[in-house]
């Protein structure tokens, strides 16, 4: 696998220079940006903190950035950090009591599910400012503007690639840190974890805030890229489920799992959009739900998880063979 990384890196430098359509490049950019968001979710999701509230963090990052730009002319370079701060503050407000009161498992999922709906409904209700359920468009400054963070697809590809790589680096660093061991211990037994000196609340809040911050950052960039944001596609429970589905289907315990999940969900989304058009609203969400059930039952480790497990098994067999011979 280590030898594959330079190859993957080299392959990722090519798309903007290949004779591919604008649409294909658009899909690749979307995959990279959403892969970053999905990777961000797994930073906490892999430790049993199954958040259905990441739609809220995504929406906060997106809307705070866009609203500050449209209403106050504040550059997204300042708007995005503010969106991230707001998302982190909300994550702390929800995460702290959940951790202190040992709200875990189904209850944690329900609390975060409520959060994502509160954010979505707030955006819808604040119609005069946010555009309500019709969504809003950040004021455009064509053709390219660094200050407005508005670029052509060619530039966006490099931004998306860099951000995706950042997500992998953070995932890797968490994976190699003692925080990972602490979180695994906490997921097993909070009381025993505290009894060896692990500050359970601190560690949980650490991964929660990192995950929320990165998700808000990803949401803001997706909004800037798409130049249209809508509470249902950027903040609702649908987005939260999409994030969870992509992470689980790709494999949340493997670094490239969420990326594979992003390829699967974005391509599926586009396929369903073309297939149904406007004839069958909700078909995509239904199919997502069915696929999530199928994956959880038959492939809980996700696509990458299964591949890695098979590779390990094959290696173990190969290593055992000479010894047996």
């Amino acid at each position: 696998m280590k030898a594959g990384w330079p190859l993957l890196g080299a392959a990722l430098l090519l798309p903007p220079f290949l004779p591919i359509s604008d649409y294909t490049l658009h899909i690749i950019i979307l995959v990279l940006l959403w892969a970053f968001v999905y990777t961000s979710w797994t930073i906490m999701g892999r430790f049993g903190l199954v958040s259905l509230g990441h739609g809220a963090f995504l929406g906060l990052g997106t809307y705070v950035t866009a609203l500050l730009w449209n209403h106050y002319g504040l550059t997204p370079w300042a708007g995005i950090p503010l969106g991230v701060v707001v998302a982190v503050a909300v994550a702390l407000v929800i995460g702290y009591p959940c951790s202190r009161l040992k709200v875990v498992g189904h209850y944690f999922a329900l609390v975060t599910l409520a959060l994502t709906e509160v954010v979505r409904l707030s955006i819808v209700a604040w119609r005069d400012v946010t555009g309500g359920s019709l969504g809003m468009t950040p004021n455009a400054v064509p053709p390219e503007s660094i200050v407005a963070l508005q670029f052509t697809k060619f530039t966006w590809y490099w931004v998306a690639l860099g951000v995706w790589a950042l997500g992998l680096v953070v995932w890797h660093r968490v994976d190699r840190s003692m925080t990972r061991s602490a979180m695994d211990a906490i997921a097993d037994d909070e009381t025993a974890a505290a009894a060896v000196g692990i500050n359970v609340t601190l560690q949980k809040l650490l991964v929660t805030t990192v995950s929320a911050a990165l998700t808000a950052f990803g949401g803001a960039l997706i909004g800037q890229y798409q130049m249209y944001i809508n509470p249902d596609t950027m903040a609702g429970v649908g987005v939260s489920l999409q994030i969870v589905f992509a992470a689980i289907s790709g494999g949340m315990y493997v670094i490239l799992g969420p990326t594979v999940g992003a390829i699967l969900t974005i391509v599926l989304q586009e396929f369903l959009r073309v297939l149904f058009g406007t004839r069958c609203i909700g078909a995509a969400a239904t199919i997502y739900g069915i696929m999530l059930i199928v994956f959880i039952i038959f492939m809980p480790a996700g696509i990458c998880g299964v591949i890695v497990a098979r590779m390990r098994k094959r290696r173990a067999v190969a290593a055992a063979a000479p010894a047996a011979g």
Partner: peptide, 14 residues
């Protein structure tokens, strides 16, 4: 109350 997700050495290292 061992941490089942962690190997023996990591149980103690943590």
């Amino acid at each position: 109350r061992p941490f089942r997700k962690l190997p023996i050495l990591e149980n103690v290292a943590v």
